[in-house]
Design a protein around this nucleic acid. Structure first.
Lengths: 193, 193
DNA sequence: GGTTATATTGAATGCTCATTCAAGTAATAT
DNA sequence: ATATTACTTGAATGAGCATTCAATATAACC
């Protein structure tokens, strides 16, 4: 009855995500996206409605990926607390690498959230999903006696989120190779104390 | 011999700073700056060379202000550690307020640093100046016995910087009124433990 | 008060952008 | 095969941008 869509939506989202992640929203042009997605302007607009529409779907794609990576840490680790530690170590390793892109969600919040309610809402949702996973993990750790009983998992998760955001900023500042490790050590102390 | 400049450079910088701070660099247009500085395009270009030139001077203006505010905390407080605590509390209070602008330097690093070496360099310099002040304060606190002798002031300052950056991100996420306090409590515990 | 050097003005320039749309194309259902 | 429906194409559109510049104004010095 009708012609079928030729492109793979996830592949397009991944390419668009990398472009937005490298350049930020404002500094990504439609011609940039045409290059990276191999879609013509018309196709982008018919599939995603607008540059903002594509961006919002990109943010969701990124957020779902992030949460499933975190869940993977819980599945792959011997205990909830060691999963969280491995997750933090992964972020620190990115800090030390040549990848200076930080976190797409954090970058987007700082760039756009105060001017774009849809971005604000979507980004907050994705951050909350990560925080919720951390709370669950910390609760399990506490139930297992891995985490001190006098800690409040919800409060500690908030503290970890702030430190993760801070590390994402640090990744953008060209830190010494050791700076991120020095900070990680202190975050872990707060976790274990 | 020649006509004199009519505008006050600091006043212009403060107005430009607020505009950039509210909107970000990319989303601030020359017409916006013409509005806020009351300078015509030609005057902006003759005084600051370009939009980027004005922005860089604005960043420096902001950074100098930040450092002198921090120094003021040291002057006004009864001890170095209580000065640092008051400084952190000031950031947390901004988190809870309606001012969702965060920190101009952090915002600018996330928006531009990977594409603009001059901004990267200037921003890193300003952050380093704050970190240096924190190190000095923590060293004094340690000398006075206010800070545990087994702490490393340089390491602790890095940790505080990461937490400050994280709080700046938090300010942009529409946090609960209490979230920032919950985090502050844990930062202070790390400081005192 | 005339001269000179510099500041100010704001319209003009040329560019790039997000978005649209008319024309072309292909897959399915009959 | 053909009709139908929907996807793809990429040039065109119009708006807004950063920057320039020729004209104008003015302060300081002689």
């Amino acid at each position: 009855m009708a012609r079928t869509i030729e492109f793979d939506r996830n592949e397009v989202l991944e390419n668009a995500m990398n472009t937005f992640w490298n350049n930020g929203y404002s500094m990504t042009s439609i011609p940039n996206l045409v290059d990276s997605t191999k879609l013509n302007p018309g196709s982008i607009y018919s599939a995603f409605k607008s540059k903002e529409g594509l961006f919002l779907e990109t943010l969701e794609f990124y957020g779902l990926n992030s949460v499933s990576q975190l869940k993977q840490y819980f599945d792959d680790s011997s205990s909830p607390l060691s999963a969280i530690e491995a997750f933090l170590k992964g972020i620190v390793d990115k800090c030390k690498s040549t990848d200076k892109r930080g976190c797409l969600i954090v970058n987007s919040i700082l760039e756009m959230a105060s001017h774009n309610d849809a971005v604000q809402a979507k980004a907050n949702l994705q951050l909350q999903a990560v925080e919720d996973e951390l709370v669950k993990g910390l609760q399990q750790a506490q139930a297992m006696g891995e985490l001190s009983a006098d800690k409040n998992p919800a409060d500690l998760a908030k503290f970890l989120m702030v430190n993760i955001w801070g590390l994402r900023v640090m990744a953008k500042t060209n830190p010494d190779a050791q700076s991120a490790d020095i900070v990680l050590k202190q975050i872990l102390e707060a976790l274990h104390h």
